[in-house]
Design a protein around this nucleic acid. Structure first.
Length: 575
DNA sequence: GCCGTTTTCGGCCCGACTGTTTTCAGTCG
């Protein structure tokens, strides 16, 4: 059992206890313990007895004993007993928007309903409207929620959400009564997938803002409409929340609506300890109703004794205590990039020619690109035979003579074969400036087999970089089973760079592991995995995720200039 | 169930909106 699994059990216990109608504070205690486990900086094996766990804030005697038992036996006995006492369909019902534990409980107790399907049928038969606390409207909302649940899994890729958010932003920013406007929420924090879009506006005329907002052409229906808070759902199913506040409240609201929820809870706890109350309207001395006048988020953090915490870090994963002790890292920016690697051309499954990419990169002010088409086994992607490798290398050599101020690094994305070998013999591999190694086949290996396979490829002296390390496709496919800690250790040992694949359907390596990797001294390369010119824009998403992984420019391969990159590539080439 | 620089008992983050009520519970973020 690992930390993630253990945290998952604790989280689910909290949910199950809520459904049972347990003490809400007790439920919360399990939820807090889940977060504490997730954020442990030592492996579970370092905790030998309940006493060790009790040292962790948020874990007390009772939960510590349950955890140690689970870790030792591999079975979470308490979880199993709670789970078996509740029909599993009730948990599924919680996913319906507008349905919480109390209402699910009521439906179950009074109507004996314990699946989403039955619930839908009961709504259509008008059986919910007479329950206490329910009515016609509640019943309709539940039906709509079920429809929505069926239609989509309720999350969206970040590039799509950013695009939509920008459309609303551009529309509202034109209104003269808007004094400040920001895209907040998980987009601002750069989460890899997005549930909904949060917009924040300060204005003296909220009604004007709100009526413009709800009449936007992308809007399908209005979920709620109040004086300051409005939610709409778009045709694509994504929902957009708008809050309108005064200019004095704006920095506090921006902080609040940027989240994360866990970060906010921790911040309010900190404020409380220091004798303040913090909410979306201000920062108040105890017993005062007058907010302290602060103009920016920076000032709020400062008032609470903290360095400014960039939005990407606000996940309650150690950023608050880090900001308390010393200045936070100076995170990488788009302007820090000097070039990108992992680009596919018309030689394999990309569309543009090498030269088109050169022009595109030069326009961005970059000094180099690294071409890496698919290797010969990737027949589905028109992988390069040895002859075509040589042909491309000749072409790149010519282009390098033609564009003296620019550099094209010659590379390949070599399949990692099932046994961990690379996809060309040494005589071909030695022609490249760099080699990206990636898994494109046989995804279903066991964790041990897959980990060994990849580590073997990383040990190859010609390997420069590990491509899309987990193979996940966001909202579509989980990554292959892998021991990522071992992979990161192997990268550190073998001087292998790990790719942060910036394609929005991948965003792989996951930001939670990026932080771990850079802490171990592994270099990260922000790669667009481009197949067309527009994909070069993915670099910006990659930078966002790198920031989320606490990366500074010094942690990123493609923040180095040409001669520094050459040194790194030579070093990894010679092993 | 957890926690403690007022506390080993009595709190536990906080507010908007909706739909149900006729002052409030539930849900959500």
């Amino acid at each position: 059992m690992d930390k993630k699994e253990l945290a998952g059990f604790l989280e689910e216990i909290a949910t199950l206890l809520e459904l049972k109608g347990g003490n809400p504070f007790k439920c919360n205690a399990f939820r807090n313990a889940a977060r504490a486990v997730e954020n442990l900086d030592k492996p579970l094996s370092a905790f030998k007895s309940p006493k060790d766990f009790e040292q962790v804030k948020g874990i007390g005697k009772s939960i510590a004993e349950k955890i140690i038992n689970a870790v030792e036996t591999g079975r979470f006995a308490y979880y199993e007993s709670v789970k078996s006492s509740i029909p599993s369909g009730l948990v599924e019902m919680l996913k319906i928007p507008g349905l919480g534990p109390k209402k699910v409980r009521a439906v179950y107790d009074r109507l004996g309903i314990y699946t989403v399907g039955e619930l839908e049928y009961a709504c259509r038969e008008n059986r919910l409207k007479d329950l206490p606390g329910f009515g016609i409207k509640t019943q309709e909302n539940i039906l709509e929620g079920i429809e929505l649940l069926k239609r989509s899994r309720g999350r969206f890729h970040i590039h799509e959400a950013r695009h939509v958010a920008q459309v609303f932003y551009d529309d509202l920013v034109k209104l003269p009564s808007v004094t400040s406007i920001a895209i907040a929420g998980s987009i601002r924090r750069f989460k890899e997938t997005i549930k909904d879009i949060d917009l924040l506006v300060s204005s003296s005329k909220p009604e004007e803002i709100i009526s413009r907002f709800v009449s936007q052409s992308l809007v399908n229906d209005i979920i709620l409409r109040g004086e300051t808070k409005t939610s709409v759902r778009l045709i694509t199913g994504i929902s957009v929340d708008l809050r309108v506040v005064s200019q004095e409240e704006f920095p506090f609201a921006l902080m609040y609506f940027t989240g994360s929820k866990e970060h906010n809870i921790a911040m309010r706890g900190r404020a409380q300890k220091l004798g303040f109350k913090l909410n979306e309207y201000g920062l108040f001395e105890r017993n005062s109703t007058q907010s302290i006048k602060l103009k920016t988020e920076e000032e709020i953090f400062k008032h609470l004794g903290l360095d400014f915490i960039p939005p990407e870090l606000r996940e309650d994963r150690g950023e608050i205590s880090a900001a308390e002790k010393k200045p936070l890292p100076k995170l990488v920016c788009l302007d820090d990039l000097r070039g990108v690697f992992h680009i596919h051309t018309n030689y394999s499954d990309g569309i543009p020619t090498v030269e088109k990419y050169i022009h595109d990169a030069m326009q961005r002010g970059w000094q180099y690109i690294g071409i890496s088409d698919h290797s010969q086994s990737a027949y589905y992607a028109n992988g390069l035979s040895p002859d075509r490798v040589k042909q491309q290398i000749r072409e790149i050599d010519e282009l390098n003579s033609k564009y003296k101020e620019f550099r094209v690094f010659k590379g390949i994305e070599s399949d990692i074969l099932p046994d961990g070998a690379l996809d060309y013999p040494e005589e071909i591999l030695s022609l490249f400036d760099f080699v990206v190694v990636s898994v494109h086949s046989k995804f279903k290996m066991t964790e041990e087999q897959m980990t060994d396979r990849i580590i073997r490829a990383m040990r190859h002296p010609r390997t420069t970089m590990l491509g899309h390390p987990t193979g996940r496709l966001l909202l579509a496919r989980d990554g292959y089973d892998l021991d990522m800690d071992k992979i990161i250790d192997a990268a550190a040992r073998n001087n292998v760079v790990i790719e942060l694949n910036a394609n929005p359907f991948r965003l792989d390596l996951d930001w939670r592991y990026i932080k771990k990797a850079v802490e171990k001294g592994v270099l990260i390369s922000i790669n667009p995995d481009a197949h067309r010119l527009g994909n070069m824009d993915y670099a910006e998403l990659g930078v966002g995720l790198a920031r989320k992984g606490w990366c500074e420019p010094r942690h990123i391969l493609n923040c180095l200039n040409v001669s520094e990159v050459e040194k790194i590539l030579d070093r990894s080439k010679s092993g």
